[in-house]
């Protein structure tokens, strides 16, 4: 794509896709913005008055908003930390030649194929349930008091479930990156007298930087909108302990039928997501350059 001619042709070819994507994005976005300025409640049909920024001020001054904002950041940060650290370790483990490697790899990747709702329900009912759950049984077998995960550490439990869902993704990406590491580099570092730890920190980890960046960026996009796991386990509670921004928007618009307020929340969420994206690109985007 060097010449002016080929560049013009490329633009022409791309334009339908770009226009379609633009429309796909612009129409819902502008409708949401439009609704966010209306007094629009499904329980009060007929009245669609323009009320300016009232929905926004209502949403932003709601005490639940700050709780939700904090929970969102905690959820994203917690899951990222677990999946990156765990993913790197698992990838290194899976990269070792071992017996039954193929089966183990499939097992490790399996959680990614489980629907979030199903995964969360399995965790809630089969593992974390304080009466029948596996963890409760184990605690009882050891003579301990069963721990009621979703009541006593609700956010941590949800972070655990979501991390379990996303660990395979991180592992997979990091594993492929690890396999592209030049073997001669590892041998050179061995000759240079680097211990396995030094090799990991000076050679392997820098090599993985780009893959880690990709994992962080992609996961952040999805983790900002975690919803199903919260809906089927805690419903945002107890109190607001597990309400994130996504869930708060849902509660606003579909539990309280306040379309205007929900739309304002949605726009706030979009703005927050962009702020997070800008920060991320600032911090780690340079890793994507060659």
């Amino acid at each position: 794509m060097a010449t002016t001619h080929s560049r013009a042709a490329a633009r022409l070819m791309l334009s339908p896709a770009v226009l379609l994507l633009l429309g796909w994005m612009i129409i819902p976005l502008s409708m949401t913005i439009y609704f966010s300025f209306l007094h629009y409640n499904l329980l009060i049909p007929g009245t669609h008055d323009f009320i300016g920024f009232a929905n926004y001020s209502y949403f932003l001054t709601d005490p639940a908003f700050f709780a939700a904002l904090f929970n969102t950041l905690l959820l994203v940060g917690g899951v990222l930390a677990i999946t990156i650290v765990g993913g790197v370790l698992l990838a290194i483990l899976l990269d070792q030649p071992m017996w039954g490697q193929g089966i183990v790899r499939i097992l490790v990747i399996a959680p990614f194929f489980v629907m979030p709702t199903v995964g969360a329900l399995v965790w809630k009912n089969m593992f974390m349930n304080p009466v029948n759950g596996l963890f409760a049984h184990m605690a009882k077998a050891l003579g301990l008091q069963p721990f009621d995960f979703l009541a006593q550490a609700p956010l941590a439990s949800i972070i655990g479930m979501v991390a379990w869902q996303w660990l395979p993704f991180a592992t997979l990406i990091l594993l492929t990156a690890l396999q592209s590491l030049d073997r001669e580099q590892l041998e050179a570092s061995e000759m240079d007298g680097a211990s396995p730890f030094s090799t990991f920190f000076y050679i392997t980890l820098p090599h993985l930087a780009r893959a880690i960046t990709v994992v962080v960026l992609i996961q952040t996009i999805f983790l900002l909108s975690v919803f199903a796991e919260i809906l089927v386990t805690t419903n945002g509670g107890p109190g607001y302990a597990t309400t994130n921004i996504t869930y708060l928007v849902y509660a606003q618009s579909l539990l309280q039928f306040d379309v205007g307020g929900g739309s304002a929340g949605g726009i706030v969420a979009v703005i927050l997501a962009n702020i997070v994206a800008i920060f991320l690109m600032r911090m780690i985007g340079k890793n994507l350059d060659i």
Partner: peptide, 20 residues
């Protein structure tokens, strides 16, 4: 161990550390 033999190797692909 390789590092303890007091030998140094130059590889065909150079095997330089790309991020350093």
């Amino acid at each position: 161990a390789p590092a303890k033999r007091g030998l140094a190797m130059v590889f065909q692909s150079y095997a330089l550390y790309p991020h350093m």
